[in-house]
Amino acid sequence: MSSVAREWREVPGRYNLKGTKCANCGTIYFPRRDFCPKCRRAGIGKIEEYDICRTGEVYTYSIVYDAPAMCDMIKPYAVVMVRTDDGVMIAGQLVDVDLEKVAIGMRVRAVMRKLSTDGESGIIRYGYKFVPAE
């Protein structure tokens, strides 16, 4: 059950792209960090909740042909590094897309999808993936 508990603590980040921002230097952290390694002591007490922008563009991508079991049903698929409109880099899958049309600079938005399941009886994990925007 420990993995269910760990997964559960990650829900705000996975569902809603909840990150943090250091009010001292302006750096945005995703996944969230509660300590700013740039400001160290000066950042203590200045870390704020921050909602990462759900839209952005493809910074770089790769097409995965040899998929792990949890992605077997949708292979081949695209993994993208997205630069969100507030400048945060987030990696994830790009789905509902013609793989030949995936390109650097493509506009995308984050949606919630099933990420994986623990077999037929286990927990279903939901989280963000990207789909083409516009």
């Binding site: 049903m73 949708i74 789905v95 509902d96 949606v111 919630m112 999808r113 099933k114 990420l115 279903i124 939901y126 993936k129």
Partner: peptide
């Protein structure tokens, strides 16, 4: 629905 879609993801969208 895509294999990664279900009632949860459709309702959420």
């Amino acid at each position: 629905p895509s294999p990664d879609e279900d009632v949860v993801t459709i309702a959420t969208e």
